[in-house]
């Protein structure tokens, strides 16, 4: 069983789904058994999601898209 420090080292690799299936399962087992780590991971996951949502609200101006379409035809 991984301890809290070992799980902390894998925080982002776990949230980014970049660990091997075995390591993902090992981290998950720890989180299931350790409420403090679980709360921290949930916070970090929400944080990453929120940052992404804020930045993704930006859209390209329609005039730019039109310009790019004209560029393609030239």
């Amino acid at each position: 069983m991984l301890n809290c420090n070992e799980v902390a080292e894998r925080l982002y690799s776990y949230l980014d789904r970049e660990l091997s299936p075995e390591e993902m399962a090992a981290v998950q087992r720890h989180l299931d058994a350790c409420p403090p780590c679980r709360r921290w991971f949930v916070f970090e996951e929400n944080m990453l999601r929120y940052v992404g949502e804020c930045a993704r609200r930006v859209r390209a101006p329609d005039e730019l898209t039109e310009r790019i379409r004209e560029l393609r035809q030239s």
């Binding site: 930045a55 993704r56 859209r59 390209a60 101006p61 790019i68």
Partner: peptide, 18 residues
Amino acid sequence: LSEEAISHIDALYRMALR
């Protein structure tokens, strides 16, 4: 292909803006 490329314009623009 160029049409598919243009479909990514929002993502490219928000990256460029940041």
